[in-house]
Amino acid sequence: MLYQTYQPRSPLSQFVELLWSREGENLPKTQSRLLPIGSMELVINLYAEDIVMIEGDGTVTTGKEACRQGRAIFFDKMLVEFRESRSIDQNIAVSADRTYDFVVVSNWYNDFTIRYGDRIIDNKSNQLSIGYWKDGLVVKESYNYPVILMT
């Protein structure tokens, strides 16, 4: 297994403490808690310009900038408390119809609290994320999680 870290210099160091990369099998338990949760750094680095994101409620967002804006609303306006997000399992598969180079299926456990209007909602649930890769970038990603109806 190859594990590398890098501490960036200024001005990036004002915002990023550490960059890391891991290649190989059998992720040690101590590193399994370091996996990203789909926040901005992934949108910038790994998503195609015309990324299509499909949320658990069926909402479809197209384009890297629109996806960034959606994530910003969640993190800046809705998220009250973040307690945990950890990878339970991750598998890579070849796309059956060869439209994509490969597909990554990730099962996550998430524990956080959000604000929706006047309501505070605690969320403890699993999320199945499916990322479709083409030419080294994620071109489509779907998030499958329990949907809370907000009426």
Rank of each mutant, 00 (worst) to 15 (best):
N107A: 05
I73S: 06
R98L: 10
S87Q: 11
L12K: 10
K140Q: 15
S95W: 03
E41N: 14
E84L: 05
I51D: 04
P11N: 07
N110K: 12
I73M: 07
L18Q: 10
T62V: 12
D118L: 10
I148G: 01
V139M: 08
P146R: 06
W133K: 02
F82M: 00
F102C: 14
I88S: 04
D111S: 09
A96S: 12
N110L: 04
S95K: 07
Y145S: 09
T59Y: 01
R33Y: 05
Q127C: 14
Y6K: 02
Y132A: 01
E41P: 01
T62D: 08
I120W: 02
I51H: 13
K77A: 12
L34Y: 02
P11T: 05
D118I: 10
D57I: 05
E41K: 03
E65R: 15
I92S: 07
F74P: 08
P146K: 11
I121F: 08
S32T: 05
D97P: 13
K134M: 07
K134S: 15
T59P: 02
F112Y: 15
V94R: 05
D76T: 04
T151I: 10
L27F: 07
Y143H: 14
N107R: 10
L19W: 04
D101P: 15
I44K: 06
T151H: 13
I88R: 01
T151C: 12
E25W: 07
L19A: 01
N123Q: 07
I37S: 15
V94L: 14
